[in-house]
């Protein structure tokens, strides 16, 4: 059964003012339990608006978001409880840090859930460990940390609530390649260990191709495509038409296929490419 079901979601910013802008237009898709979903689209395509609906921060003008089969916009549905079940990490989450110590900041979410001090403590330590935050950092002020550390602390603050669905808006934005890989590795590790559902917003096709089970492509607030990475990336022409580009390796392989080389289409990382090329070579593959 789908854990989250989005149907006909429409949302408009600044309704009734001269600045009115449709951000989401009849978007529908499902997220299955345990799935890794990537939402991609270029700037202004409605990605961030969409994820703000998943935990009820924004209320749709029309349409439904179902969590475990229940519409979260129904009257009397406790939206606050949704926030604990669907953990949302915003873009540049390090700007939300405010407490005196890293420990207290990670504890903010669990405390709001009304857990006992003992449970809070256990969760903070668990979340810090999951994001490789050293124990000695826990008593430091979050403002003394480096950018990458702050980012991990902010993500830990959401993970500590142990949400069933973890939603991350551009978790790797603004980090150097090493920091980006580290954050992505920690997220996949977390998901492997807990089996929770993960939704990532990204404009990087590479991230989507590499980690996701399902890719949701948005364009101008409309659902453009939805399917497995293989399905989505096999329609390369359409994707490039809306201003997104395939991972460079995939492009290279695609042009090799056009040249007549017998290679698989679904190659998204340098590692996969190397393997495919090597096996082609060992087969003595010529065109």
């Amino acid at each position: 059964m789908s854990i989250i079901k989005v149907s006909d979601l429409t949302y408009c910013y600044g309704k009734g003012t001269p600045f009115e802008k449709v951000a989401l237009d009849n978007v529908s898709f499902n997220i299955e339990k345990g799935e890794f979903v990537a939402i991609i689209g270029h700037t202004g395509s409605g990605k961030s608006t969409l994820v703000s609906h998943l935990n009820g921060l924004l209320r749709a003008d029309s349409g439904v978001v179902e969590l475990d089969g229940e519409n979260i916009f129904n009257k009397g549905y406790d939206l606050r409880s949704v926030r604990f079940r669907v953990g949302l990490v915003f873009q540049y989450p390090e700007y939300q840090l405010f407490e005196e110590t890293v420990y207290k900041d990670i504890a903010f979410g669990p405390k709001n859930m009304g857990l006992s001090d003992e449970e809070v403590r256990e969760r903070v330590i668990w979340a810090a460990k999951a994001l490789e935050i050293k124990a000695e950092l826990l008593n430091k002020s979050p403002f003394e940390l480096s950018g990458g550390q702050k980012r991990r602390v902010a993500i830990a603050g959401v993970i500590a609530m142990r949400p069933e669905v973890l939603v991350l808006d551009e978790p790797a934005a603004g980090l150097d390649p090493a920091g980006r890989d580290r954050v992505m590795r920690l997220i996949t590790d977390y998901r492997d260990r807990t089996g929770s559902t993960v939704v990532i917003v990204s404009h990087s096709m590479e991230t989507a191709a590499r980690y996701a089970d399902k890719v949701v492509v948005l364009n101008n607030g409309k659902l453009f495509m939805c399917g497995s990475p293989d399905e989505v990336f096999s329609r390369a022409d359409e994707i490039e038409k809306i201003g997104l580009s395939l991972p460079p390796v995939t492009k290279l392989i695609h042009s090799l296929i056009k040249e007549g080389y017998d290679l698989p289409e679904n190659i998204y990382t340098a590692h996969q490419a190397a393997e495919a090329l090597l096996s082609l070579k060992s087969k003595g593959g010529e065109r």
Binding site: L57, V89, F90, Y95, F108, N112, M113, V158, M161
Partner: peptide
């Protein structure tokens, strides 16, 4: 608004 949303997402009331 951004910060409010972020804290609301962590259950702030």
């Amino acid at each position: 608004q951004k910060i409010m949303s972020a804290q609301k997402a962590r259950g702030a009331d």
